[in-house]
Design a protein around this nucleic acid. Sequence first.
DNA 1: GCGACTCATAATCGCTAGGTCATGGGTTCA
DNA 2: TGAACCCATGACCTAGCGATTATGAGTCGC
Lengths: 108, 108
Amino acid sequence: MANIDRGIQIFRREERHLTKVFKALSDGTRQEILRLLEGRQRTVGEIVGNFNLSQPTISRHLSVLKEADLVVDHRQGQNVIYRLNDGALSTSMQEFFGQFRSCQDVLR
Amino acid sequence: MANIDRGIQIFRREERHLTKVFKALSDGTRQEILRLLEGRQRTVGEIVGNFNLSQPTISRHLSVLKEADLVVDHRQGQNVIYRLNDGALSTSMQEFFGQFRSCQDVLR
DNA sequence: GCGACTCATAATCGCTAGGTCATGGGTTCA
DNA sequence: TGAACCCATGACCTAGCGATTATGAGTCGC
């Protein structure tokens, strides 16, 4: 019974994580940031340069993406560099879409 | 040039559609509704019975899912029956995740 | 046509999300 | 050490979201 409860807890936690991921993806700016990072990692300043939004705004978006585990950052001198968290996207994707029969034939 | 503009318009429209889809998915209740509908189609009343939420609230959630084209409804007598819009999920999935190299090896 | 049933919509409320400007903390270099 | 640069965070405002209750619109059986 304790095992079942633990299983439910894990399920709930992953459900919340999944919700975080979808919330992160449900904004056009954040989608665009991910596309920018697909090519290569970038500094915050480089990312800001691609939008007509203030630096704090982009910084907020980046923290949402980081909270959803979709990006990873590290400091290099004065700059903070963001890159895609490879694997996180595909993992979430399989986790959710794998539940649906109509998606089975699109997943490996 | 007109062709390019038209292409951009299509891109923008699909981008907005994708945002709608992710917004629809970014709520735990709506995720749960989709899982319920995975097994079989259900009336609104049946869906409401699975939650501790009012009927209007569920009705709102259903309209969000419908607006995102993730579900389809039709009336049958007094009831309105909802079912998954098979294909819409997998299409959106490929449309977005196909952009990322790290997802390529998970998609067919 | 009328009451009963099923579902959608209108009006409303509290909270979260996304934007801004101002400011603070870390790092580099002279 | 102090100035300059890069980025994150605090304070704030507005708009949108999720929930509710009340009500309206279709449909069925009598």
